[in-house]
Design a protein around this nucleic acid. Structure first.
Length: 208
DNA sequence: GTTGAGATTGCCT
DNA sequence: GGCAATCTCAACG
């Protein structure tokens, strides 16, 4: 267990999901470095969470990465879209945090080229941000964030003025934990998915 | 500006 | 065969 990995264990997954807000997600692409501040996350609590891929201990090639060490990359494909989770908790405990939105920092022109659409639509969704980064394969699945071209920097100069919570998006609401408030986001930040224009803070973007 | 349904691919979530 | 942790765009208010 490295120091880097200790961030991703030893406390509740919901606490880790909140703590990731404001951290910088960075990718060394072939076109150059692209990065952004994390503004939206969702916690998935593994075997007891009816909305989680690893509910009831489901373990297949699809979900294998979730069972890896803390800080492992979990990339999966859904309807032509790639999505990215950070695996949290100790090896064998299949919990994860889905990164749902980022505020662009470096390489904005690269993201524009990859997405061909400007404004908040550049990165305000889990599939959108992967498109913007130009990650369109599962090549980095199961790698450690620490060693991969995709990393999360755990120091930051951005802190949410307020963290909001809600139910998770797109999950089956009928399960036991389907309506738990495990989605966390920087209140009023424009790059949060489904953020209403009338609620956006266009000056400070919700940072303190 | 906001909401709803269709698109469309891989795996059994 | 059916469904999935989404995106896009057309239609409505």
């Amino acid at each position: 267990m490295t120091n880097y990995q200790s961030f991703y264990t030893n406390r509740e997954t919901t606490a880790i999901a909140k703590d990731l807000l404001g951290k910088v997600l960075s990718y060394r692409s072939e076109q150059g470095v692209v990065s952004g501040y994390i503004v939206e996350t969702e916690a998935y609590l593994g075997q007891q969470d009816s909305a989680a891929h690893a509910f009831n201990g489901r373990r297949t090639a699809f979900t294998e990465a979730l069972y890896g060490q803390p800080g492992t990359i979990y990339i999966y494909q859904l309807r032509q879209q790639y999505m990215f989770d950070v695996v949290v908790q100790d090896e064998g405990n299949p919990q994860g945090v889905l990164i749902r939105g980022i505020e662009p920092l470096l390489g904005r022109s690269i993201m524009l080229r990859n997405r061909v659409i400007d404004g908040v639509n550049l990165t305000n969704g889990p599939g959108k941000l992967m498109q913007a980064f130009g990650i369109q394969s599962k090549q980095m699945n199961m790698q450690l964030l620490e060693n991969a071209d995709l990393t999360v920097k755990l120091t930051t100069d951005h802190y949410p003025a307020q963290i909001a919570a809600s139910t998770r998006i797109g999950v089956n609401a009928n399960g036991a934990t389907g309506l738990q408030p495990y989605r966390f986001y920087v209140a009023h930040n424009p790059y949060v998915s489904r953020m209403k224009k009338s609620e956006m803070d266009l000056k400070r973007h919700g940072w303190s």
